[in-house]
C-alpha cells in the first residue's frame, strides 16, 4: 500500500493506510473472479470508437499571444515573468 501511495504521490497516515488496505483488499479479492473467464487469444479492447489515426494537418491555429498566455498563467499560484515558479527539484535542506 505504501509503495503504491508513493508512486501516486499521496501521503497516508497510519490509520488511512490500514483503512484503505482493508477496503482495497476486499475490492481486489472480489475481482479475482475474472480469472474464471477464458480469454485465450482474445484481443484487449482499448477503445470502442472503431476510429483510427484521427489527425489534423500540422498547421498553426491559435498562436499563443500575450493575452491568452496570461489567461493560462492566471491559475498558477506563483508566476515570475511568464514562467511558473516551483520549489527546486533537488532541494534538500
Amino acid at each position: 500500500m505504501l509503495d503504491v501511495a508513493q508512486l501516486a504521490r499521496i501521503e497516508l497516515s497510519k490509520a488511512e493506510e490500514t483503512k484503505f488496505a482493508g477496503q482495497l483488499g476486499a475490492v481486489l479479492e472480489n475481482f479475482e473472479l475474472l480469472n474464471k473467464v477464458d480469454t485465450n487469444g482474445i484481443e484487449p479492447t482499448a477503445q470502442v470508437t472503431g476510429l483510427t489515426n484521427v489527425f489534423r494537418d500540422d498547421e498553426v491555429k491559435n498562436s499563443g499571444d500575450r493575452e491568452s498566455r496570461d489567461e493560462l498563467l492566471s491559475n498558477a499560484p506563483e508566476v515570475d515573468d511568464g514562467s511558473i515558479k516551483v520549489p527546486g527539484v533537488f532541494n534538500n535542506d
Binding site: 501511495a5 504521490r9 482495497l24 475490492v27 481486489l28 516551483v86 520549489p87 527546486g88
Partner: peptide, 27 residues
C-alpha cells in the same frame, strides 16, 4: 523543501478519500 514534497502535499490535501482510493487502486 522541493518539488516532490509539493506534489505530495498538494495531492494529499486536495483529494478526498474515494479519489485517493481510486488513484491507488489504479496505480
Amino acid at each position: 523543501k522541493n518539488l516532490i514534497d509539493l506534489y505530495f502535499k498538494n495531492r494529499t490535501v486536495g483529494f478526498g478519500d474515494e479519489a485517493k482510493r481510486s488513484i491507488m487502486m489504479g496505480t
